[in-house]
Design a protein around this nucleic acid. Sequence first.
DNA 1: ATAAAGGGGACAAAAATTATCCACATTAAA
DNA 2: TTTAATGTGGATAATTTTTGTCCCCTTTAT
Lengths: 134, 134
Amino acid sequence: MQITRQTEYAIRTMLELALAPEGEVLSTRYISERQDIPEDFLKKTIKLLALADLVVTQRGTGGGVRLAKPADQITMLDIITAVEGPISLNVCLSPAYNCPNQPTCPSKQVFQRAQEALVAELKRQSLADMVKSM
Amino acid sequence: MQITRQTEYAIRTMLELALAPEGEVLSTRYISERQDIPEDFLKKTIKLLALADLVVTQRGTGGGVRLAKPADQITMLDIITAVEGPISLNVCLSPAYNCPNQPTCPSKQVFQRAQEALVAELKRQSLADMVKSM
DNA sequence: ATAAAGGGGACAAAAATTATCCACATTAAA
DNA sequence: TTTAATGTGGATAATTTTTGTCCCCTTTAT
């Protein structure tokens, strides 16, 4: 019940990008050195962020990464979801899962509510808010 | 960011115990068959529940397991914590962890709040509530 | 005594996570 | 137009966590 290290990497990367001058790109190597993240692993992590439209990448000399939208339009939930997929506190909450104990499973509802509370909080704070508090 | 299968086993076990007649013990084997849980793995899981004072075990012939207290005094949070230890959505929230970015880490606060919301919900519903909803 | 329980430690298997390597495609600049 | 800097993608390895199994022990009612 914990975010993975990769998600931590993603959060730190997004903070780094949010702090960079508007429109400027940062290279993966630069970020990996600043944040002490294995470069090749970071590449894949950034790819996930790009697929989720949180960052834009630019290939070639002078290329790199930048935020795809203003920091106040990106939430912690966005980042976590980009890396880990949709949050589901219990397997039974995954969309794909077909619970064999349906419909009498009493724990599903508990997890459903807990998850909603969690998601609401993660959605509440934006990357911009986080940067402000630094 | 998901409870483990072992925690699922623990929840199902607690529900099974909550449904048993007051004061009666159920054997690990019985529970493992009813709930389709590997017996030796269940033994360890039950041991964790016993260490957390959620169940009482009785050795010897006719022995088994029963709830250590009324079902309305046991919460989902109690069960999760018994198996997985204290919830910490991010390593940086673990009591033992000493964050190298302290005290300027902006994500810690976000996780702190999210975790509190989650914990509050998990604490809200008791085993008794869950049984009622079956 | 005996058999039916739980207790505990070692270990194995499986799954998930993290990390590394390398060949390739793109692009700006020399 | 070559070159070097950069992201892309796939394969694979290493590590860690989770899950499962085995086996011998202790306790206890009959």
